[in-house]
Structures are given as structure tokens and as C-alpha cells.
Nucleic acid binder design. Structure first.
Lengths: 343, 343
DNA sequence: CTGTTAGCGCTTTCAG
DNA sequence: CTGAAAGCGCTAACAG
């Protein structure tokens, strides 16, 4: 029923390979002939069958994205950046979300086998070695966003610096007891210690040390997830400490928002009783007046998409990894005045 | 290089169709034979080539989702619901975002031709007739989420009722001048008047009428988009009215958030000087303490995904459309007291 | 129950 | 510059 390349060839009085040529290379075909073919295509309303083309070319014109948590606004923002780029590049975008670690296993397992996408972008974690090897074997380039991994192309920010400027800001305001909440300290796989949360903690500790303040492990808490709920729970732990912090630096805005909610529920005034700084600068942050360390999330996605795309096309990319700039965005949650000024 | 069905057949000493059978139907093959085939598959590490299978079966095992605005948290929530269902169903999910109307045209155009997905879910708008026809011709089922369209399967809520209860709530609190902000009145295509925003307005007007309050067109404003920024602009218009409203009902939480921001920037206290109610109950709503009309967003996505999936499998679904329940969620933005009680 | 054979629709040598 | 023909790897009649 549907019109095929044969129909076009017949209508144009040429062979199918000629039709194929005008459809693709567009080289080595006489102008007059091409014209006839084009007309036939138009007349018949011919559209090439993508499935056949895919089989023949052994690709799918698709980039896959694996999100660790779909519910995380940060990841959605990165996804948006990816979407914008890939749609412009004429690539389809398929998304894989893996809430659990088990699911991650099976997902990566499947992905690395049946060519469901020509390239993959992984957000906020790094795949185990065996998967990486498999992707390589199948020539499926993988790039990571929001995670620095020397083994493969990654787009990331300097998280140590981020943790540093956030903490420094609090320090400059006069705070000396500063809490830190991160998602998790232990890497979720054996890949090494480049977890953003852990790096931000390094920056946090460095700033503390520089200020001559001893690092107090009791002041850092794990939330487990980048969620308001978990952030609130972690805040609860920190704030019920006998000598509670006067400021909290959270590894993500979502956690920070949870901190704010918890603090307020306890009658604490922000920034009067507690200063808060987050990380990411998701959309809610500005609504909440949250001081935070901005990451260029969309840019991160865009870059990642650009890199995989070029890699997919077999291009030899020179600088595959990239570090993007961050910036402290000062809003209300730290107060306009220093602690001393606030009295 | 990669191992094919032929290799397996040879290794197992059977024909390729037998291998194909154990891979698929799994019927009509002797246990002993199947066992041999399975062993060969295992031994060779054989994985069926999806592209070949797709071409042969003429499908792609993929459901597509077209979002009108990726930046809209409501749509992302629906998308999450879809993702959860389709991943469980073993279907890939590809997303298409169309920020502009032009892009919508070309997107739908392409989608309806080359089989890039076996089924489509459209969020928050309805495709023009000519596209619908084309999808039908190509046997690609389409279902709509967040939009009631009698022509095709749709998952939606009773927006008139939603507008009604929101307004009624405000009325019960003693407000008599209630503003309404919606995205846009005019449908963006010629499909008819089922735009959620317009329906919510009907409910709004009905509640007003019931309360014996004359509808004042000056009290409704269009924001154009479901964004905080646009919501703030619309609020500006309403609030600078000579006889400004004491309450505003917004067609979405994002708009409502913008209203809150604008009001506060003008020194207005919420709910003291202005009551606000939104629509959707996105995650930010609870953080902001926003009273709103909750829509089951994830459920909406789940249902839509379930329907397309069944339709894709050729199942004759009886009740393809569905209306989901809504619910007024009362939080702080309207105040715990009535207007009179607040004095 | 199982093997043979003919496609699915396009790309791509390889001759001409 | 152009056509014939050989796949790409799998599914699905159709004979046995």
C-alpha cells in the first residue's frame, strides 16, 4: 500500500539506486535526472521508510538519555538542553529513567546490546566499567553530564569550587557553625570519588579550614536523595544538635528547600535564625529567594548533546570533556546583612 | 561480526525459523529443541537485532509524547506518569517538544509519516484534523492528555468543575471581586472550545453567577503562557485596576506563583491583602503554600500511556476516554479565616 | 513440530 | 552518471 522507492523509480523511469542517490548523497546524478526523480517523489507523496533505512544503515537516528531521577528538576533542566539541541540536529530523543539501582543494571544491559540509540547521555552518575566497555564494542558513544569521569567525555562544573564559594559566602557573613547536607557520600557504584556531593563537601571543608574553623563531622548530614522531604529530615537532624548550626549549605536546591520548610515549621526565621544556601539554581530557587550556586543546566545538556552527536557521526572530537562555569547567586535566604550587623 | 539468527540456527542444528519461534511465539516447538536453541543462544551471546525485527514487523516498540511546553512542570509530571507505565510495558519513550506553532506543524507532519513511534500521546493540545486523519491512515493511535476532544481518546479532568470549586472557595471566604488569569482564551488551532483555561473560566463565571455577582470582563486577564513571569505581568494588569480584586484565581500554579511574586513585590500581603488559588498542584505549590485545585498529573500520564499501549497492540478498547477526579487543596494563600473574620 | 523461501524497503558495491 | 543485484537480520507464510 505505501509507496516505496520502487514506485518512485518506476514513475521516474530510473533505477532505485538513483532514487536512493537523490535521497541521500545527492552527488553523481545529472540535474535533469534528479529533477525527474524529485517530481516523481512529489507526485507520489513518497516518504522513505525509516525502519528500512535504519536496518540498512545500522543506526536509529536517536540519542538516548538516562536520568537517574526523573523527579529531580535539575535533571529535567539538563534534559531540556539536550532536547533543544537534538531536535535541531534532527535526532530523536528517547529517555530512560531508572529509579532503582537494579533497574539501572538491566537498563544499561539492554541499552548496550540492541541498538536502541546511537549515542547515550547519562546524567548524574557514571556507568560501571563493564557497560562502558560494551558500549564501546558496539560503537555507541557515551557522554556524562553532571559528573566528571576521566574515562569518558563528561560535561561538569567545578564542584569543589562551588562548595567553596557557597561556604565562603556564609563565612563572610559571620557564620562559624555551618552545616552541610549532601545526597550521599558513598558513590553508588565503584567508579571512584567524583560524586558532586562529595566534591562540594571538599570545597566546604577547604573554606572552613582557610577560615581557621575545625571541621565538625556532626555538622554534615546525608539526605539520600535530592528531595525536599529528605532535605527536611536531614535539617531536622542538624538543627536538633545540641550546638546547632546558624547556617546550612545544601548540595542541591531541592534539599535546601526542604531545609527552609523544616526550619519554618519549627518557627525559625530565615535568614534571621538560619541562613541557607543551595546548589543548582533551579527555577524554584528564585521563587523561594534562595541564595544558591548556579550551574548552567541547560548548557550542560546542550554541550553533552553536541558532543555525542559529533561522536555519533564518527567525528574525531578533540576536546570531549568540558568544565562549565558556576556562579554564586545571592538572594534573600542568607540575609542582606552580615550576622554581626543583624545583631 | 555480530552473531545473527543464522549462527544460532547452525550452532543448534536447526532452521532459522525455529530460532525465531523460540524467540517469539514460543509455541509449536518441542521442548528438547527449544532447549538446544536456548543453549546456542546463550553460548553465542546472541541478541536479536532490533532494527531487523522492526523492519520485519513494521513497528518500533516506541511511544512518542509531544509536549507543548517542556518548561511546564505540569507537563513534566504527566510525562513522568507516562514514563513509568511505558518502561514497564517494555516500550521506549521518545519525546518531542514544540515551543512554537510552526514547529508543531512540521513535527506532526513528520511524525505522521515515517514510523518514528507506534503510538502518540499529545499533552495539552489537540492536533489539527488533517494530522489526525493521517495518523489514522498509518494506524498510529493518538491519545490526548489534559484536553477533552470527542474525536479521539482523551484523558482529562472536569475543568469547569475545577474553576467552579476554586471560585466558590474564594466566594465562601467572603470575596466578591475575584480576578481570573488564564493562559489564552482563543484555541491555538481551530479544534473547538475545549481549552482547559476557557473551561475553568466557565466554572468561574458559573460560581459568580450563582453567588449573584455580575461577571466583570475587566477582571480576567490572559497571560499567554503558564509561566511565573507571564503570571506576574497579568497580575500587574489586574491589580492596577481602579477597583482591584481581593482575590485571584489562576488557571495554573505557575501563573499563581507569578501572581504571588508580583503581589509581594508590591508590598501586598498574602492572604491578607490578596488571596490566591492556583490549578494543578505541582510540586512547588505545596512549598509555596498555595491553595490549588489538584489534578492527578501522573495518573493522567499513566492512563494515557495505558490506552495508547493497548490501542497499539490492536486491542479494541471500549472506554478510551476518561475523566479523572480533581480536588481542592487548601493551603495558606487564601487564609484560614474568611475575609470578614480577618476584618 | 520444523525447514525453506520469500519478503520488509532501503543502501551500497560493482559493472557498465 | 546510472542500473542490477546483493545484502542488512528478522518474521511469516507455506510446505512437509
Amino acid at each position: 500500500m505505501p509507496v516505496t522507492i520502487y514506485d518512485v523509480a518506476k514513475a521516474a523511469g530510473v533505477g532505485i539506486s538513483t532514487v536512493s542517490r537523490v535521497l541521500n548523497d545527492n552527488t553523481n546524478v545529472r540535474a535533469e535526472t534528479r529533477h525527474r526523480v524529485l517530481e516523481a517523489i512529489e507526485a507520489l507523496g513518497y516518504k522513505p521508510n525509516i525502519l528500512a533505512r535504519n536496518l540498512s544503515r545500522n543506526h536509529v537516528q536517536t540519542v538516548g538519555v538516562v536520568l537517574s531521577y526523573f523527579t529531580n528538576p535539575f535533571q529535567v533542566a539538563v534534559l531540556q538542553g539536550i532536547e533543544r539541541f537534538s531536535s535541531q540536529a534532527g535526532l530523536d530523543l528517547t529517555i530512560f529513567s531508572m529509579e532503582s539501582l537494579k533497574r539501572r543494571e538491566t537498563l544499561l544491559e539492554n541499552l548496550s546490546h540492541g541498538r536502541r540509540c546511537d549515542g547515550l547521555i547519562v546524567i548524574s552518575f557514571t556507568p560501571e566499567d563493564r557497560f562502558l566497555q560494551r558500549f564501546q564494542r558496539y560503537h555507541i558513544p557515551v557522554v556524562i553530564a553532571d559528573f566528571a569521569d576521566e574515562r569518558i567525555p563528561s560535561i561538569y562544573v567545578d564542584n569543589v569550587a562551588g562548595g567553596y564559594i557557597a561556604t565562603k559566602h556564609l563565612l563572610d557573613l559571620g557564620h562559624t557553625r555551618i552545616g552541610y547536607i549532601l545526597d550521599h557520600i558513598e558513590p553508588q557504584n565503584g567508579s571512584g570519588g567524583n560524586e558532586p556531593g562529595a566534591d562540594r563537601q571538599k570545597g566546604y571543608q577547604r573554606a572552613l579550614t582557610e577560615a581557621g574553623i575545625a571541621f565538625d563531622p556532626k555538622l554534615v548530614s546525608e539526605s539520600g536523595l535530592h528531595s525536599r522531604e529528605r532535605g527536611a529530615i536531614a535539617a531536622h537532624r542538624l538543627l536538633n544538635h545540641p550546638n546547632p548550626p546558624s547556617a546550612i549549605f545544601a548540595a542541591s536546591d531541592m534539599i535546601a528547600l526542604g531545609v527552609m520548610e523544616y526550619a519554618r515549621s519549627q518557627g525559625l526565621h530565615i535568614p534571621g535564625d538560619l541562613a541557607v544556601v543551595g546548589f543548582d539554581d533551579i527555577e524554584l530557587a528564585s521563587f523561594a529567594g534562595l541564595t544558591t550556586v548556579r550551574q548552567p543546566m541547560q548548557e550542560m545538556g546542550r554541550h553533552a548533546a553536541e558532543i555525542v552527536t559529533r561522536l555519533m557521526q564518527g567525528e574525531k572530537v578533540l576536546r570531549t570533556s568540558r568544565q562549565l562555569p558556576i556562579e554564586l547567586v545571592i538572594r534573600e535566604t542568607c540575609g542582606a546583612l552580615t550576622l554581626a550587623e543583624r545583631g
